[in-house]
Design a protein around this nucleic acid. Structure first.
Lengths: 219, 219
DNA sequence: GCCTACTGCGAACGCTGTATGCAGTGTGCG
DNA sequence: CGCACACTGCATACAGCGTTCGCAGTAGGC
């Protein structure tokens, strides 16, 4: 969406896509905190200040990263008309994308929409037409779905070992051992027990999606 | 949860609650970005490094802030048994809290649970018992509900005027004027049209909650 | 062939979170 | 009673951050 400037002077040495790709690669490899202007510039073989010829701010860079990830959805031009199938497709693509880019959940909330995110929104708004939801409800539900998927993928992987993870584990164990909040203690204990990722995440994912579509009320 | 140290030496000049309160006030008044160690310390009339006698890191401070906000829920000791009523109560308290503290949504995702957050979890886990959901589903749904409420409250207030807001508005208008994505253009146009906050947010809130409980499938 | 819009970027500014070391304090113990 | 020492507050420093400024160099349009 940038205004292509007049075409005098030297050709830009990089492109927005280059920058976005490099930033995404950096975040994938070393976490979102490793994405600094200087680091991205260095990865491109450029000086730090040079990046500001392409982006206006760091938030701008974040927007580019989100749009880059949105490209991975690669959705069909038109929804099929079966809204459950359409949303399931989006959800599966999203789950895969968030597994590849766990940091994306933090950015997608506040980002302004690039062209690929707009394609994503367009598809989902159209896919939700058969539900009869009005526009604000659809927008609301899309955000809800997106958050749920990001959250699911986040907990699905949770690789980051180290001292912070150990502290977290000790914290969970202390909660599980605290009898003053029995429901919470039971929940933490059961989460600790079934940790080894055997819980068939595919099944959990489908079940969660079904709850989103049909609600949590007992049927 | 801090180990109360041996009681030699001078009394600490501040308390964790003081610190949390000051940090929350700062975030409320000037946004989350204004919460820096130095700023909080200055507000307390202390030196910057002094805060590290109370907290271990900035994330630790964030945890305190989240727990401080969680205290505002002030939930009953036991859920009533009517899970819809219980969840509605939590949702309304949450909505009020997130309206007072719009920044809390960004922190609540990654924070580790202090005692007040644990009380909140305990209540909700118990409240969800009548639904028959298993433990992981309940935890999942609680996160979903929390995200939805934070998101709702965020869009409900959106006060922050200035140049960033103006740029965002221009962006939305350009999307509304782009015919290549008709559903999205229609959605943005309709959002622009009904902007003046007349849309009875209470009604929207209740309707959204109902969708969470009963799903979005046409009935 | 020059004017000029453009690019890349070294250097600097003000800010951040955090580590270190030291002076001062007051309680518990000998 | 007095001293040892665990404890507090904090000045200072460090590395890194996002961002700005100004300048050198490049190349298309007239």
């Amino acid at each position: 969406m940038r205004a292509r400037a007049g075409r005098k002077g030297p050709r830009p040495a990089h492109s927005l896509d280059d920058i976005a790709r490099e930033a995404v690669a950096l975040a994938d490899a070393q976490g979102l905190a490793a994405v600094s202007i200087r680091a991205v510039a260095a990865e491109l073989g450029a000086g730090a200040a040079s990046l500001y010829r392409y982006i206006a701010s760091k938030d701008d860079l974040y927007d580019l990263m989100v749009d880059e990830v949105a490209a991975e959805y690669d959705l069909p031009d038109e929804p099929s008309g079966d809204w459950i199938a359409d949303l399931t497709l989006v959800a599966e693509r999203g789950r895969a994308a968030y597994r590849r880019h766990p940091w994306a959940g933090q950015l997608s909330a506040g980002a302004s929409w690039g062209p690929r995110v707009q394609d994503y929104m367009e598809f989902l708004l159209a896919a939700l037409e058969p539900t009869g939801l009005d526009i604000p409800e659809r927008v609301d539900f899309i955000a809800l779905l997106n958050n749920w998927i990001a959250n699911f993928a986040q907990h699905e992987i949770q690789p980051v070992d180290g001292d912070a993870a150990a502290a977290k584990a000790r914290h969970v164990e202390s909660i599980a051992a605290d009898p003053s909040r029995p429901h919470l203690a039971g929940a933490m204990a059961s989460l600790l027990r079934t940790d080894p990722a055997d819980a068939h995440p595919d099944l959990l994912f489908r079940r969660g999606l079904d709850r989103l579509f049909h609600g949590i009320a007992p049927r």
